[in-house]
Each structure stands twice: as structure tokens, then as C-alpha cells.
Design a protein around this nucleic acid. Structure first.
Length: 308
DNA sequence: TACCAGGTAAAAA
DNA sequence: TTTTTACATGGT
């Protein structure tokens, strides 16, 4: 689908080598990191570089991405192994939304009384995509019904029990690892019996080859949504959540989402929480960037609201 | 201490 | 067919 449009330069063989990746500008990595860490219950300072333990061909490795000049959408990528340079670069491109062009969204939102000041303050902001759709799917399950903070703690236990440690980070568990874990072991991380069976089920299907979540990347929004909803444990909310966060479909919004209903109501409604239909209607003017518009509202509220 | 938090499938009506 | 219910943890 996406070509190898950016030039790769391996500046140096070995440890000090890095790859360069040109992404669609405007892009402000420091701002993205700031917003990303504002969504985490941890109250640490935002990191200065993007660091993530990822898995390539099942092999865990550390990815580090820097943006030397905030005005230039050119990134430097380092991996803990140079064996998979090409894949590492493709993955960084995926995770950091190298293909996303914010300019049409900015043109659409410019002049809007609520969005206009927000896009100015958040110029160059893109979300991050998780490294794999399996991780995204499990994340969606953990976040069903309970608070994000509770889900975060549960996910941490899953990762520390079944994942792979690289330096100070953890690569998310491979599907094969969760597939061979017992329901009881998964439940020990804090998932309900039902949720543990959902996680086990999807991990098992991926492991035995009967499910390939990467097929979603080639589907239209509606087909992808139906595909996800056919999986046990994934309803409408989870499907839309995976579409916007995991696949980066910028027009998708989980309109049943409590957080979305609140934030959209606050900025585009009368101040109070909206219904699912109300959310769709209020975001209408931002089509085909309704999900991105909602993300900007959320990011703005996280960044510019006091954390107690 | 209760109650709610970025839902879902299964049971009951 | 539509409406209720059980469920996990963490913050307030």
C-alpha cells in the first residue's frame, strides 16, 4: 500500500547508525510526546524522544525516534538491532503517522470558533498508533467499562507477566505467549473471566493462523468495523476505538464513548454530555476528520486542564 | 464505603 | 424482541 517514499540513510554501520525518515509535515514530535504522556496515569515528565519496545517478526527490539529540528518533519530512528532496518523504518512510519497530512484538517477547522484556537496551540500534533493491532485489540478489551487508570494497571500486569523486557521498557506480549497462557493466569492480571477468554480467544486465533488482523488495513471503514464486531468480545465501541486508535481512520469516532461524549459536549454542544447521536451531529462539520477533531479536543483538555 | 469509570454477551422478561 | 444483569480494578 504505502511505498518506500522516504530516503533511507544509514549514516554509520553498527551501534551509532540511524535511519532517517521523512514524514508528512507539519509534525511536532515533542508535542506528540507531551500529549501522549498526558493520557497516561503516570505523572512523569514527557520523554524527549519516542522510545518503544516493539516486535518485528516476533523478535522484540527497542525503537528510538528523535526529531532534530522541530520545524523539519525529518526523523532519526535507531533500533537495538540493525538486522531489521527496513521493517523498523516501516513500523516507525506506521506508529508516528508518517502518511498523515494534517493540512486539509487544519484548513477545514480554521475559522471554527472552538477548533481554530485549539489547532493553533496544537500545531503539528498527531496521535501515535500502537505497534500492532493485536496490542490494540487487547487494549480495547481492557478498557471496556472500567476506568482508563484501572485498565492501565491491568495492562501493565499483562505486560510484566507475559511480555519481553528490553532495557527499561516492555514489549507487549506476543499472541503466541497469551495463547498458551491459561484463563486463570490471564485473570490474575485483573481481567474478568469473560475478558480473559476474549484475550485468549483472539490470541489463539492469531496463533493458529485463522485470524489476521492486518487484513483490516486493506479494508474500508465499514468492512473493517463489521470484521471487528464479528469477533467475540468486540462491540460497536471497541470496533470504532480500534478504527481510530489502532488503524488511524481519522473519520471514525466511538460515539458511545463516555469521554468523547463529555468532551464533544463541552466544546461543540451546550457544555454537558451528549448522546451518541449528538456526538455524530456535532462532529459533522469536520467530516472526513471527525475522529481527528475529537482527538484534538481531548488533547487540548488533557494539556490545558489541571491534573490534580 | 459506595459509586462510577472511554462495554459486552448472556440471561431474563 | 427488548431489557436487565454480572463483571474486574482504581480513583474520588
Amino acid at each position: 500500500m504505502r511505498g518506500d517514499d522516504a530516503e533511507t540513510h544509514l549514516r554509520d554501520a553498527g551501534m551509532s547508525g540511524y535511519l532517517t525518515l521523512s514524514v508528512n509535515g507539519p509534525f511536532d514530535l515533542a508535542l506528540c510526546l507531551k500529549v501522549s504522556s498526558s493520557f497516561s496515569p503516570e505523572k512523569a515528565e514527557p520523554p524527549r524522544t519516542f522510545r518503544c519496545a516493539v516486535r518485528i517478526d516476533g523478535f522484540p527490539l527497542l525503537m528510538e525516534v528523535r526529531q532534530p529540528n522541530k520545524k523539519e518533519p525529518i526523523l532519526e530512528i535507531t533500533g537495538s538491532s540493525s538486522r531489521h532496518d527496513k521493517d523498523l523504518k516501516n513500523l516507525a512510519h506506521w506508529m508516528l503517522f508518517g502518511d498523515l497530512d494534517l493540512k486539509p484538517f487544519y484548513r477545514l477547522a480554521r475559522g471554527h470558533p472552538e477548533l481554530s484556537p485549539i489547532i493553533e496551540r496544537l500545531h503539528g500534533l498527531k496521535p501515535f498508533r500502537p505497534p500492532s493491532l493485536f496490542e490494540m485489540a487487547v487494549t480495547a478489551i481492557t478498557e471496556q467499562q472500567i476506568s482508563l487508570a484501572a485498565a492501565y494497571r491491568i495492562r501493565l500486569r499483562l505486560i510484566e507477566t507475559f511480555g519481553n523486557r528490553i532495557e527499561d521498557l516492555w514489549a507487549f506480549p506476543a499472541p503466541e505467549r497469551l495463547a498458551r497462557a491459561s484463563i486463570e493466569e490471564i485473570m490474575k492480571c485483573g481481567l474478568s473471566y469473560r475478558k480473559a477468554t476474549y484475550v485468549s480467544g483472539i490470541a489463539g486465533k492469531i496463533t493458529d493462523g485463522s485470524l489476521d488482523l492486518d487484513l483490516l488495513k486493506g479494508m474500508g471503514d465499514d468492512d473493517a468495523r463489521s470484521f471487528i464486531m464479528d469477533l467475540r468480545g468486540f462491540g460497536r465501541w471497541s470496533a470504532d476505538y480500534i478504527l481510530i486508535r489502532g488503524l488511524g481512520r481519522m473519520d471514525c469516532v466511538p460515539a458511545d464513548d463516555l469521554g468523547i461524549q463529555t468532551i464533544v459536549g463541552k466544546h461543540l454542544g451546550k457544555g454537558s454530555r451528549l448522546s451518541s447521536e449528538g456526538v455524530q451531529k456535532a462532529l459533522g462539520p469536520f467530516k472526513p476528520y471527525r475522529g481527528l477533531a475529537a482527538f484534538y479536543l481531548l488533547a487540548h483538555s488533557r494539556l490545558h486542564t489541571e491534573k490534580k
